[in-house]
Simulated assay, not measured.
Amino acid sequence: MTIKLDKLDIGILECLQKDVTIPVTELAEKLGSSKSVCWRRIQRLLDEGVIKDRVAIIDQKKIGLGVTVFAQVKMHHHVKDALPDFVKAVQKFPQVIECHTLMGSVDFLLKIIVKDIEDYERFFWQDLSQIEGVQEISSSTALTRFVDTTSLPLDHLYLEGNQAD
Rank of each mutant, 00 (worst) to 15 (best):
K7T: 08
I10A: 09
G11Y: 05
G11H: 05
I12M: 06
Q17L: 02
D19V: 08
D19Y: 09
V20H: 14
V20P: 10
T21M: 11
T21N: 14
T21C: 07
T21D: 13
I22C: 02
E26V: 14
E26N: 13
A28G: 08
A28E: 03
A28N: 08
A28K: 07
A28F: 06
A28W: 05
L31A: 06
L31M: 04
L31V: 07
G32Q: 00
S34I: 10
S36I: 09
V37S: 12
W39D: 15
W39S: 15
R40C: 05
R44H: 09
L46Q: 13
D47H: 12
E48A: 05
E48I: 01
E48N: 00
E48G: 04
G49L: 03
G49P: 06
V50I: 12
V50W: 04
D53Q: 10
D53T: 09
A56C: 03
I57C: 12
I58Q: 12
I58N: 06
D59L: 02
Q60W: 09
K61Q: 09
I63M: 13
I63W: 06
G64V: 07
L65N: 12
G66V: 01
G66K: 11
V69G: 00
V69L: 07
A71I: 08
A71C: 09
Q72T: 08
Q72P: 02
H77A: 10
H78Q: 14
V79C: 13
D81T: 15
P84V: 13
D85F: 05
F86A: 11
A89C: 06
V90H: 03
Q91K: 14
P94G: 07
P94M: 05
V96I: 15
V96P: 05
I97S: 10
T101K: 04
L102E: 07
L102R: 06
M103P: 06
M103Q: 12
M103G: 12
M103T: 15
S105Q: 13
S105V: 11
D107C: 08
F108Q: 05
L110V: 02
L110S: 01
L110N: 02
K111Q: 09
K111C: 01
I112G: 07
V114W: 00
K115C: 00
K115V: 07
D116R: 02
I117H: 08
I117C: 01
E118M: 08
D119K: 02
F124H: 15
F124M: 04
Q126D: 13
Q126T: 13
Q126M: 06
D127Q: 11
L128D: 01
L128R: 00
S129A: 06
Q130W: 01
Q130D: 01
I131M: 01
G133E: 01
Q135P: 04
Q135A: 15
I137A: 00
I137M: 14
S138A: 12
S138G: 03
S139W: 02
S140C: 06
T141I: 15
T141V: 10
T141Q: 15
T144W: 11
R145M: 08
R145C: 03
R145G: 07
